[in-house]
Structures are given as C-alpha cells and as structure tokens.
Nucleic acid binder design. Structure first.
Length: 603
RNA sequence: GGGGCUGUAGCUCAGCUGGAUAGAGCGACGGUUUCCUAAACCGUAGGUCGUGGGUUCGAGUCCCGCCAGCCCCGCCA
C-alpha cells in the first residue's frame, strides 16, 4: 500500500493547505509545514488510514480540533482523485479522521500484486545508467580461527544473513563480509604449543581435527597465562608470522584452512553465503591508519602507546577515554584493524570497496568499542558525505534459567550440536505425528522435513525476537506447532499446497476479482502491507518486524481458510479465493526467503 | 565512579516517527470436526506498562531522578 499511502499523503496535505491557506502560507515562510499526520489505522475498525493532525494543529490554527477535522474533510470530499480511492472520511473521537479505501481501489492494488514477482516492493533506482550502485557492506558471523563456532555466533550469522537478503532484494549490491579472527597473539600461542605437542599439524593438511585444535588452543592459552618462557616464545612467534616467515605462514595457512572447512559445513547447513575477509586482510593498511591519524592531529602518545582520545566519552578517572591504536611494543590491536577496515571499505577501488553503507552485526557488548571506532573514523574524515556506518547490536542468547546458555557441564554450546538437537527433536515430533495419524512417509521425506523444520525453528526463533534484548533459547517453544513459530508459518504454506493437490488451480486466470466475505477483505488488506514492511526493514534493520507480519498474515489466512469455503465454493468465488491463496503463498514464501528459511510443500 | 542495554499479563515477548478502550503466543478454563491437513479456528479469565516527577490536548513511547538485572570501561577481540 506504499503507493496508495504516498498519493493519499499528497491529497491530504493539499486538502489541509486549501482548508487553511493563510496558515500554510505563513508556516511555509517560517520553514514550518503543517503536518496532517497521515498514518496507518491503529485498529481495523478505524479503516485503513487515519489523520491525527487536527489535534495537534489546534494551537497553530487556534481552532477546536473537530472544526479543523471538519475543514479538512470538506476539502477532501471535493477532491475527485481522493473520492476515487476512498470512501467518505469519518470524524471520530476528539478529532481523528478515519479513512477507508474503496473496494475497487484494493482490488486494483491486488491485481497489480498478482502480476508482480516483487509483490509490490520497489527496487531501488540505480544512480547512473550502466553503473552499479555502491555496495552496502554487511559484516557478520565472524568466528575465530582455531575455535569452533558456538552459540555466540548464532545471532550474528542469522540476523546478518537476513539483512543481507533484504538489501539484495531491494536491489542493492551487497558485500557479505566474514571478518574472521585470523590474526593476532592467539596464533603465536597456538603455533608455539603445536610445535611442542603436535608438530605434524603445522605441516600436514588435516593432521588433526578441529576438536583437537580447540583443545590445543585451550592448553596454549593456559600456558600463556602461567608460563613466562612460553609467553616469550609466543610473542616471538607472532613477530615471525607478522614478518612473513615462510614456515610460520605455512602453519598459519593450514590452521586457517582447516577451520574454514568446518565453518563452511555450518554455513552450508544454514544456507548462508559469506565472503571471508579476515582481520589479516587489513595488515597492509594498519600503518596507514596510524599515519593518517597522525596527519589529522588525532594521534597522541600516552605512556608509550599511540592513542586517540575520544570526545564525550570519559574513563574511570574522569578524563577522556583513549583508544589504543598501537601498543607500546609496536603491535596493533583490534581497534586498529577495525579502523583500517572502515577506511578500506569506504575508500574507492582499487584500495577499497567504495561502500555507501556499513553495517556491523555484533553483540551489544561491543557498543562502546564501535562508538569509539566510529567517532575516530568520523573525526579522521574517513566517512564520505552521505555514507552511513552502523552498529546493529543484539542481546545474549540465554538458557531457560535466564543465564547465558551453557551445556549441562557448563561449557559453551557448539553450534553444530545445537542444530543437531533441533533437527532430532523435529524428527521425533514428526514420527510421533505420523504414527498418530497412520501416515506412511519415506525416510527421505522424514529427513528432509525434520532438517528444514529444525533449522527453520532455530532461525525463526532468533529473528522473531527484537534483537536488542537478550533472548531466551528454548527448543520446546521454537518447535511448537502453535504460536509465532516457524512450524506455524510453514504449515500455512502446506495448507495452500494442499489445496493445489486437491484440484485447486492456484494460477487460474480470473477476469474479475469478486469478494464478499469479511475474511477475504481482511486477508487482502494484510497482503497489501508487505511492501511497507520490507521498505521499513531496510531502514530499521529489525527482522522481527517481518516475522511479526508473516505471523499475522498466517493467522489471517488460517481464519479465512477455516471460515470460508474455497474448493467447495461456486464460481466465480472459487477461483477468486484461489487467487488469494496463491498470493498468500507467494508472500509467505518471499518473506521466509528473506528470513533465510526454505519452505515445504508437505510436512 | 563513568557509559550502554533491559524492566509491559503467571511464562515468553510485540508495541514503527507520542494518538482513540495497551496487544500476541504459551499456560489455564470453555467451545467447534459427516466438510480443503484440528499442526487449525472461536470464546473467557488475566495489567498501577519497575518507580517518582516533568513536558502537553494526549505518554508504555519524549526529558530528569531513583530502584533492579545484564554488559562494557588503556595496551584481549
């Protein structure tokens, strides 16, 4: 309904101007435009849209709100274009104006949707003919080499993928960057330790598995904390690596490759595509960061370390908080890498990506870090005019006890175990239902359905929550067949596929769309909201808004399906209803696709 | 000490730029199936929106104080 909303907005604004020409004129002079406040109706009984402005304008216009509302309405009903799309407006309460769209208008809109594979969602316009848009960069997932992916990577990976899909659908060029932790002191530790206990791992492909690597990593960390000699050796090892020692580099590459393969298994299961560009990629640009900061006068040497002091952010002592960009020993740290990354991503090719928008999907705990880094980038003039850089934070994954999610033995939960368990539980549910209903299905079917449902449940549970707050992980809730869950949405689609199997032609050509039931109109109105939801998502970056919409659409559809006969209806109603079913299926499928969730025909 | 996030029904959570009587789902209680998958639908009960002020025609939403929980705060990422 975006286009309707926009054209209606113009009509209403014009009506307000005609009703109060003097005030509109004088307020234009003062740079202030009278706002009629046209918004979607807050409740179905108020129609499709409402004008709230009359209440607020009392002060400027010095008239009671109902008089203002009356004046606006009088002008509106003189507008033929308005009357073509809307019923007569109604004034309600203290001065709200309720607007209901005419059925023909909704039908026309519906007709357009049916023939539009974008379902009404506008595609962004390219700046120049033949030129591609500057990319939007989404930085997400970012596991660490030599560690297994765990529950802490879940949200970033799922939310980041969803946002990337939305931007792609809107027509942006998207760069999905996996900023893996592939550099730094941990490699010194690990290589030093492996040299002693498992030297073959440093020279032979796949000599040890990732599980062992994780064990070795843990041991190395402990040695590093306890043993001075080990610490010194590790530091030397890092220096060797950073200086490009061939043996060290070879070992490092082996370790990275091995981790990469493991990560890829998880990404494949989740149907997530990423471009790996780890921290090490920015090594050649670290020095330039320091130089550039020095040139712009931001660099300060404090206690031997090179820092930038932040504005407006104070440390414990009440003094401005420093961000260390080069350590006393000459080493760089993560802030430097992040700064180099921002610089590179905004820079133009060949030494950059030429991005217009930069999005970081990481946990909320890094908010301070990013605020600092963004401030430095801003002050160093690395962010081009009109470009945006945003941190998209999310809360912790908690167990049902409200604490950080752990295994029974108190360890972090591995992602693959989490996926396995969801799938196993989905399979058990499915088998129980099959036996209850006396259905017989192939093992292939069972495997496919359980995998799809299990993964969908995990993704949907995460995405359907407002990402800012912490999120309580519960297999029972996410796999539940009722409520705002993946299985509920998938089931709505299965019902529609069922209609097609029972002889309903979802693609029947219909000359004239004809609807007579309230449930049909509810469904139509819900379907027409899709474009607005997607466009808002691009701005607000809150996937739960899309989930909410899809859930409401499913509910509205289920009510329609339950209360209105479809296959048993007479023509022309039968075909018209099938058209609604088809558009519902298309919308649900597109919505789920944007969430990164594949759908099913039967389950 | 400074900063960030959170606090809404018994539980898990929505609530977009301030708008009409604060909404879902689960759980509880009650109902619906000769009919397209009942994995559904319909109904009932359940609230001092942490708390105290302020801003205004109007506040869950904006501002200030306080309380509680979680997270971050110079050489880890």
């Amino acid at each position: 309904m975006l286009t309707i909303y926009q054209s209606l907005g113009g009509r209403v604004q014009a009506a307000l101007g005609r009703a109060f020409p003097k005030d509109t004129y004088s307020s234009k002079e003062s740079g202030y435009i009278l706002d009629p406040q046209l918004v979607s109706a807050s409740k179905p009984e108020f129609g499709d849209f409402q004008i709230n402005g009359a209440l607020q304008l009392t002060k400027i216009l010095k008239k009671p709100p109902r008089d203002i509302a009356n004046a606006i309405v009088e002008e509106l009903i003189r507008d033929e274009t308005f009357l073509e799309i809307c019923e007569l407006p109604e004034i309600a309460g203290p001065g709200f104006i309720n607007i209901t769209l005419k059925p023909q208008c909704l039908i026309r809109e519906l007709q357009e949707r049916i023939n539009d594979n974008r379902l009404g969602v506008p595609s962004i316009k390219y700046a120049l003919e033949g030129q591609s848009n500057p990319p939007v960069i989404i930085d997400f997932s970012s596991p660490n080499i030599a560690k297994e992916m765990h529950v802490g990577h879940l949200r970033s990976t799922i939310i980041g993928d969803c946002l990337a899909r939305v931007f792609e659908f809107r027509g942006h060029q998207v760069l999905r960057l996996n900023h893996v932790g592939d550099w730094g002191t941990q490699f010194g530790m690990l290589i030093t330790h492996l040299k002693q206990v498992a030297p073959e791992a440093l020279s032979t492909v796949n000599a040890i598995n990732l599980g062992d690597l994780v064990k070795f990593y843990r041991e190395a960390k402990q040695l590093f904390d306890e043993d001075k000699n080990f610490q010194r050796n590790s530091r030397e090892e890092v220096v060797k690596l950073q200086n490009g020692d061939p043996l060290s580099l070879k070992a490092w590459r082996l370790l990275c490759n091995q981790s990469r393969e493991e990560f890829q298994k998880i990404y494949d299961r989740l149907h997530i595509h990423l471009n790996e560009r780890g921290e090490s990629f920015y090594n050649p640009y670290l020095k330039e960061v320091i130089e550039s900061l020095n040139e712009s006068g931001l660099l300060v040497i404090d206690d031997g370390a090179k820092c930038v002091f932040l504005e407006g952010i104070l440390g414990k002592d009440g003094l401005p908080l420093p961000v260390i960009v080069q350590k006393r020993d000459g080493g760089f740290n993560y802030a430097t890498t992040d700064l180099a990354a921002i610089r590179y991503r905004f820079n133009n090719s060949p030494k950059g990506d030429g991005a217009c928008r930069l999005i970081y999907v990481t946990d909320a705990g890094q908010a301070n870090h990013f605020a600092g880094v963004f401030q430095i980038a801003e002050r160093a003039n690395w962010i081009p005019k009109g470009a945006r850089v945003e941190h998209v934070p999310f809360g912790l994954v908690q167990g049902e006890d409200g604490k950080k999610l752990k295994t029974r033995s108190g360890e972090t939960v591995r992602l693959r175990d989490l996926l396995d368990e969801a799938i196993n539980r989905a399979e058990a549910d499915l088998r129980r239902r099959l036996s209850d209903e006396g259905r017989i299905e192939t093992e292939e079917f069972i495997a496919h359905v359980s995998t799809t449902v299990g993964i969908a449940a995990i993704k949907y549970a995460d995405l359907s929550q407002n990402r800012v707050s912490n999120y309580q992980f519960s297999f029972d809730r996410m796999l539940s067949l009722q409520g705002n869950t993946a299985p509920y949405l998938l089931y709505a689609l299965v019902r529609i596929a069922g209609l097609a199997r029972k002889g309903g032609n979802l693609n029947a050509a219909v000359n004239e769309l004809l609807f007579i039931e309230a449930q049909e109109w509810e469904l139509i109105r819900e379907l027409l909201k899709f474009d607005e939801v997607i466009v808002n998502l691009e701005e607000e970056l809150l996937p739960n808004r899309l989930c909410n919409y899809l859930f409401e659409l499913s509910q509205t559809f289920n009510r329609f399906y339950d209360q209105v006969p479809i296959l048993k209806a007479n023509e022309p109603y039968r075909n018209c209803r099938l058209v609604l079913c088809r558009l519902t299926a298309d919308t649900l499928k597109q919505g789920m696709t944007l969430l990164g969730i594949p759908t099913l025909e039967r389950m």
